[in-house]
């Protein structure tokens, strides 16, 4: 059992006690949660499969090589969209980003890469479209892109000033 599960379990136990004391509706809460889980299960399973297909279809080496060549403003641009392509969780994405930094990428590229992964990462897209709809996904993506560039640019300027 990982740390997140332990925290969530602790929070759930506390809330069950609070609901039991406050309204006595803790069983209703269980039913509500179970109903929501059953309603969302097909979506979640499908999203897991989609995320798995994305992960195997985007070669890690391709992203790594493509971004290592980037530098400066070009690197920020490449980093933003490269981060989007890093369709994987933090355990897989951060070592790749670390290796790109070690390969000589600038702060701007790396920060754009992390921000692009955080805000645009394709691994989240199945859940975003499933729960928010396509219009929400498009809105979130379009509004996030300039901020990824801005974050990369600020980091690039910070490197120029500080290093």
């Amino acid at each position: 059992m990982n740390q997140t599960t332990i925290i969530l379990s602790g929070a759930a136990i506390i809330l069950i006690f609070v609901n039991a004391r406050k309204s006595g509706k803790q069983v209703e809460g269980f039913k509500s949660g179970l109903k929501l889980l059953l309603n969302s299960l097909s979506l979640i399973i499908c999203a897991f499969i989609l995320a798995g297909m994305i992960e195997v279809l985007i070669p890690v080496e391709f992203v790594e090589n493509w971004l290592s060549k980037g530098a400066g403003l070009k690197g920020i641009f490449l980093g933003t969209f490269g981060g989007m392509l890093l369709a994987m969780g933090p355990y897989a994405a951060f070592p790749i980003i670390g290796s790109i930094l070690s390969a000589g990428a600038g702060w701007g590229t790396v920060v754009a890469l992390i921000t692009g992964w955080c805000l645009l990462g394709l691994s989240k897209a199945p859940f975003e479209t499933a729960f928010g709809g396509i219009k929400f996904y498009v809105y979130k993506t379009l509004i996030s892109i300039p901020f990824c560039f801005a974050a990369g640019l600020l980091a690039h300027l910070a490197q120029m000033v500080l290093v």
Binding site: L15, K25, Q26, S32, G33, L37
Partner: peptide, 25 residues
């Protein structure tokens, strides 16, 4: 996909219990 689902299954069940209790509270 199955690896991720397997690793997340307990977390998922617990989180939906949490969501259900939060919805009541």
């Amino acid at each position: 996909a199955s690896k991720t689902a397997g690793q997340s299954s307990i977390m998922l069940i617990v989180s939906f219990v949490l969501i259900g209790q939060l919805n009541i509270l």
